[in-house]
Structure formats: structure tokens, C-alpha cells
Amino acid sequence: MSWRWFHQWGSPRWFYERAGRWQLVCGWLALILLVVGSLWGLGFAPVDYQQGNSYRIIYLHVPVAFLAQAMYAAMAVCAVVLFVWKMKLADVAMQAIAVTGLAFTVLSLVSGAVWGKPTWGTYWVWDARLTSMLILSFLYLGLIGLRAAIQDPDQAGKACGILVLVGVVNLPIIKYSVEWWNTLHQPASLKLTEKPTMPASMWVPLLVNILGYYIAAAYLVLGSMRAIVIGRERRASWVKELVGRA
């Protein structure tokens, strides 16, 4: 059996070229899904009988909040890959995801605050889900800060990997303790295991947007991974060739 499919991931050049193509596919796919989902959700989905039109922010808020949490899990997977297979690309992915993840976390906090003002009458309440999202943003910030403080990229990657693994073990504990501490948020509107509490005309565009944002996140992560690869390999001949051609 050939191990080529596995070993080629060790080549920055191979990844850089392939990722460019994947990025193009992801970009168009995300654009189509987001345009369809957002127009449908914002323009054509029915008005909520309780919250009026302000509920429509879920078409941004819910996908972004999902992603904020999913990206931390993705980083943990990258950390395991880094420690088990010593794959440098996993570290590149970790670095790219940390920044994108922080952006999504902040976006979900801000969009939640914007929704909270007309619905709850205040931008911020110390509710369980808001609080754990805030803690999550501090965890992301910590990772970015730790990487910035250590000069050697390999060493910084391993330190971040340790921090991610410790964080991912703690994250459920943090989540449940915060929930125990205080719950006044409305129950989650979309759960994987139960039938949604919304009619199909509302949740189908939401699903389209969730998919769209996931693919958009892949587009963003691939883009920053490519930039990081170029930066780290700046002394390699293929990068010099590439820059020379441009």
C-alpha cells in the first residue's frame, strides 16, 4: 500500500498549491449558500410571533456561535495530530484556527448583544451561555498571546498544543459549572437530538446559513494557513520562485 496520500501532507508546497484550489471551491460554495440562506432568512422567512423581526439575527448569531465552539474542538484535534504524528501542518492549522475562532467568538458576542438590547432590554446579562462564550474568547486570546510570546515557531506550536489540550479537557467543566451557576437564557433553539421548536420555513434557511458559515470558515482558515505556510517557508526555494514569478 502506498503511503503517498499521508506523506504528501508533510510537504508545505503541495499543501500551498492544493489549498489554493480548495479555497476557490469553498469560497464560491460559501458565497452561494450564504446569499441564498441570508436572503431567504432575512427576507422571506415568517416573522416570529413573540420577537418580531429582531429574531432574524439568529441567521448570523447561531452559525457563528456554533463555529466558535466547533473551532476550539478542531484545534484540539490538530493538537493531537501535532503530538502523535509530529505533523507541522497541524500546528499551522492551529495557529490559523485560533485567530479565526476568536473572530467568530467576538462576532457571536456582539451579535448576541445586538439581539439582547431589543429582546432583553440590555446589551449584556450574566447569563450562562454568554458567560461561557466570554470565557471561550479569553481562552482563544490566551492561545494567540502565548504564540506571540514564544519566538521559535516549533516551540510555540507545542506550547499552544499543550494549552489547547488542557483547555479542551476543562471546557465541558467550565460550561457545566457556568450553567449550574446561572441559567436564564432561553433554551437552545436548535438541537441535534430533538425536533426543532421552529417551523421548517424558519429553520431551513438557518440550516443553509450554518452550512454556509462552516464552509466560509474553512475558506478563511485555508487562506490564513496558506499565508502562514508562505511566511514560515520564506527561505525555501519554491517560495522564492513563487514570489519571483509574481
Binding site: 470565557i135 479569553f138 481562552l139 486570546l141 490566551g142 492561545l143 498571546g145 502565548l146 494549552l163 488542557v166 483547555g167 476543562n170 467543566i173 467550565i174 459549572s177 457556568v178 449550574w180 451557576w181
Partner: peptide, 14 residues
């Protein structure tokens, strides 16, 4: 300190 403080949350809450 900054990196570790978020992990103190469960302890402080309990």
C-alpha cells in the same frame, strides 16, 4: 496568568 485564569472558572463558581 492571563492564559490560565479562564481555567479557574469552575473552581471559583463552586
Amino acid at each position: 496568568v492571563l492564559v490560565m485564569m479562564p481555567l479557574f472558572v469552575p473552581v471559583v463558581i463552586l
